[in-house]
Amino acid sequence: MRIAVVSECYRPTRNGVVSSIETFRKELTELGCHIKVFAPSFPGYVEEDKDVHRFPSFCFSTYVEYPIAIPIAPKPWKVLEEFSPHIVHVHSVFWLTRFAGRWAALRRIPLVVTYHTLVTEYLHYVPLPKPIARQLVIKLSESFCNMCDLVLVPSPAVIPILRSYGVRTEIVPLPTGVDTEEFSNGDGLSIRERFGIPKDAIVLLYVGRIGLEKNIEFLIRATSLVLQRHKNTYLMLVGPGPYLNQAMRIASSLSCSNRIIFAGGHPRERMKDFYASADIFVFASLSETQGLTVMEAMAAGLPCVAVDANGVSYAFEDGIHGFLSPNDELAFCERVCKLVSNGALRRQMGEAGKRHVREKFSHKVMAKRLLHLYEELLKRKCKNSAYHLPS
């Protein structure tokens, strides 16, 4: 099966969308699919993958990690035409993906979209009044999803949100799978040595974008309460983001600032080392559709404490694999402290979480489910229309 994947972002950008594309691409290729990715070019990045095709792009100075495609460039469209995909799978509802959707519709090729992001939680990046921006996002989401043949979402939590927008197309939950082996056997000691963390310290770890939508200020203030109670505890935040300077200023104002570490962004292959360096994973985002780094942390054997919101609530079971907390600093602190002070509970929840991810969110199982959805969609399309499979 030939699948064209179209995305507004791709490597070297690192986020949940790119991780999802990469994970499914690898597994579907092993299942015999041929996948080509179409995405904007990235300044200074030389693409060496023959199955990744780049549109020329430009950047706004404040968002250089998210270049914007110039979709009128003929070469990628020619490649797409010659590829003659059975399925077009897009990973956004906005700019480049709308052109790809139109291209697929004109050729009656089945169109699938994964709705990764609750964009209404990111309106602080949009230079429009929030009420106007919100209505625009809802309208664009509704119109694009309704022109698709199938809408995929990372967790069931997204379904009622899209239905409230007016989306009528079939919606199927399909989380990005996690390879537990990828996050096993990391070198945690090297990370502790690099950042001056004692071997016997308890490390609270956050991995993800340092952005306002990730509720970072709440996370720093809530975990600082833990650090004040437990003097041998550190907080490490791994990831880049536009809120980094503000987050560092907040941390520097706290009495425990010497035990709050901003480790910056790192390649995906180093993530297992960061997970191995930690004892507890902490996460406070209110905007997640899945919470992929929460699942990665569980795959690495870490118990998790997370704010009970949207997709994260779907990732693990409260009291079994960690603790879900209301968006309250003291309540969050209390749950983290339970784990800080109880090593046996940390190990018990960590092992349970690892089994949970392996059994319920295996990358191979999720890829087989996606392939099955593609096959069912093609059968339905052939049966109900004049569409014929490309040779």
Rank of each mutant, 00 (worst) to 15 (best):
C145P: 04
C148L: 10
L128C: 09
R134P: 09
K130L: 13
A105M: 09
I161E: 12
A133R: 04
T97D: 07
I138E: 13
E121G: 11
A133E: 15
L106C: 10
V158K: 01
L111I: 06
R98P: 11
V119G: 14
P131W: 08
N146T: 05
Y115R: 08
I138S: 12
L123P: 03
R107T: 05
V126C: 05
T169S: 06
H116A: 13
L111A: 02
T117A: 12
S155T: 00
V158H: 01
R168A: 15
F94P: 03
A104T: 14
H124S: 14
T117Y: 01
V113P: 00
E121W: 13
V119S: 15
R108W: 15
C148Q: 02
I109C: 03
Y115L: 11
P127A: 11
I109Y: 07
P154F: 00
D149A: 12
I138N: 06
T114D: 00
V172N: 05
P110E: 13
M147T: 13
Q135H: 14
C145T: 06
V112H: 04
P129N: 10
W95D: 11
K139H: 10
V158N: 07
L162P: 04
A105V: 11
G101K: 04
W103N: 02
A157I: 01
T114A: 10
P129V: 13
E142G: 03
I159N: 08
P154E: 03
Y115T: 07
F144S: 00
D149Y: 14
L152A: 02
K130C: 14
A100T: 15
V112T: 08
W103D: 07
A157W: 06
H124L: 14
W103H: 05
S164W: 07
